[in-house]
Design a protein around this nucleic acid. Structure first.
Lengths: 95, 95
DNA sequence: GGATTTTGGTTTATATTGTAAACTAATTTA
DNA sequence: TAAATTAGTTTACAATATAAACCAAAATCC
């Protein structure tokens, strides 16, 4: 019987996990891109990005593309570590 | 980029997933055993078992061991299917 | 043999989350 | 210049997760 390790609740969320999954592989992504890939509503995505950012798992940069606002997300070292730990823990449940 | 499939919210819960994970491998387990293996409080476990049961993912049998109440949980076919589907979907996020 | 603890749970109250809807503000487009 | 689109944020509400409080019976202690 595997021991069921604690699953980081910040990552154990469909949308936040999808965002992290994307960022782990592409390093940085724009808000609109994340919205398309995840099929999330903008509101939901905005909230969840803020949580990941508050936790230090991602870094958010706000700038302008031409005259429109542009939000770009980058994963942090801490974020990568957290994601890896989460995946390891999760495997204990599903493998 | 994998498409992020919908994750069954009933299974996307640390404790319920742990319970299902155990039942998938052992077929049936007693309340106390599940409590020990998952380190859950009895109250939490009771609630989550009821949810899995209401969804038809497990079947709950209440009897007596000697004169003490005994709650035994069995996974159902539907539960196995749901667990497998969940695992497949989840792999799209973490593999 | 009466009080206390333990076992095996359930119920309930609360805190946390997740999410959509409503909103803002600027920018195109018709 | 009015309407629609883009790129988000804020906010209100519903759903979830969880621990604390509770209950009844059985076992243990003094």
């Amino acid at each position: 019987m595997p021991d069921f390790k604690h699953l980081d609740p910040l990552l154990h969320s469909q949308l936040r996990l999808a965002v992290m999954s994307i960022l782990v592989s592409v390093q940085s992504a724009e808000f609109v891109y994340l919205k398309e890939q995840t099929n999330a509503t903008a509101g939901n995505l905005s909230v969840q990005i803020e949580k990941l950012s508050a936790a230090g798992y991602i870094q958010v940069e706000k700038s302008f593309k031409g005259k429109r606002p542009l939000t770009t997300c980058f994963i942090t070292k801490q974020g990568i570590k957290a994601f890896e730990d989460y995946v390891k823990a999760l495997r204990g449940y599903i493998d």
